[in-house]
């Protein structure tokens, strides 16, 4: 439609929180664990939003909420500007599909590839058996699997082939948004490169939008158009991939980029000077959650939560950044 329409996000999260009750011992009362502490995100059509962050910071929880597998404790999920309520799960599932990390356990070993790929059509009551069979043919072709595998079973396929099956299954009902939770981290690099090339091609061909969760920053830099960095349930920095990798702002983002191990045998593993005081999500640090590990933290950081500073299409949550005079970029205080 109009150019304006294109700038509307296809997916918008406002202030999502998620609290789990966790028991610590046999007799103690459950304590709240805030896995997400107010996450807001907007994803535009054909964006690839890379979501990176510490393990346990809430990435998969966010993915599960988007997929309708978990309910947020508070906050809104909007698809094309419309709020998605609990009763819209079917609708959500048709438009948002997942690709999970482990292609070995995410496919039912007793179902044939044809059954696996066509299952979403059956679940959503789409088409008859002839049209479903056609759809499977089209999908196998799209993800580069030979037609003969349709009668086969997951056990007969390699890891890369299984991940292709998972992708075919995710795409068979024409979703607009694909949530990839570490889609290549269980695969070796020759298979990883096939899958990444495939995801990039499919984005072009089908106009897909991705949320791409990964610990591999080289992969994120390669594929993402935007990047959001999470720490302990919050997004601490977000900007275009080019800006983020060229000029990381938040001290945690900088530590992440400094930890990337490029394949250079003349270098060793860097000491990134992050304290080892890892946060406990059940009793998170005061003020800025990152302050016990932050190399530039001051007393202010321990007492006061940092402001959310937005400039242009970037944001950072840190006491030591401010908007530039023209309001278009972020600069150190």
């Amino acid at each position: 439609m109009s150019g304006m329409k294109n700038r509307e996000p296809v997916l918008e999260l406002t202030n999502i929180t998620k609290t789990y009750q966790v028991k610590q011992g046999m007799f103690s009362k459950p304590k709240p664990l805030q896995a997400l502490g107010g996450v807001s995100l907007r994803i535009h059509k054909k964006d690839v939003l890379g979501l990176v962050g510490e393990s346990g910071c809430g990435k998969s929880t966010l993915a599960k909420i988007l997929l309708g597998l978990e309910r947020p404790t508070s906050g809104e999920v909007l698809v094309d500007g419309k709020e998605i309520g609990p009763s819209d799960r079917q609708l959500l599932a048709r438009r948002i599909q997942p690709i999970f990390q482990d292609p070995y356990s995410s496919l039912n070993p007793r179902k044939s590839i044809e059954e696996i790929v066509s299952l979403p059509l059956v679940v959503h009551n789409i088409g008859d058996s002839a049209s479903r069979s056609q759809a499977v043919t089209k999908m196998l072709d799209l993800v580069g699997l030979p037609e003969r595998v349709r009668r086969g079973y997951p056990g007969q396929l390699s890891g890369g082939q299984r991940q292709r099956v998972a992708i075919a299954r995710a795409l068979v009902i024409n979703p607009e948004i694909v949530i990839c939770d570490e889609p290549t981290s269980a695969l070796d690099v020759s298979i990883q490169s096939q899958i990444l090339n495939l995801l990039a091609d499919l984005r072009e061909e089908l106009g897909l939008t991705y949320l791409f969760i990964s610990h591999n920053l080289a992969v994120v830099e390669h594929l993402a158009t935007r990047v959001a960095v999470m720490y302990l349930g919050r997004i601490v920095e977000e900007s275009s991939a080019a800006d983020l990798f060229a000029g990381p702002k938040h001290p945690y983002t900088r530590a992440l980029l400094d930890s990337v191990l490029t394949p250079d045998p003349s270098l060793s593993v860097p000491d990134i000077h992050l304290g080892a005081t890892f946060p406990n999500p059940i009793s998170p640090p005061s003020g800025c959650h990152f302050h016990p590990r932050c190399p530039i933290a001051t007393d202010l950081c321990a007492s006061k939560a940092p402001p959310h500073i937005q400039a242009g299409a970037s944001h950072v949550d840190c006491h030591f950044y401010k908007k530039s005079a023209d309001g278009l970029s972020l600069q150190p205080v």
């Binding site: 020759s190 990883q192 490169s193 090339n197 080289a218």
Partner: peptide, 22 residues
């Protein structure tokens, strides 16, 4: 050699360009 071609290397591989494959 094929393996080393498959991985994106920041600064060497251009974002968005197809990666090498085997």
């Amino acid at each position: 050699r094929g393996l080393l071609n498959c991985i994106p290397v920041p600064g060497k591989t251009k974002p968005g360009e197809p990666l090498g494959s085997i």
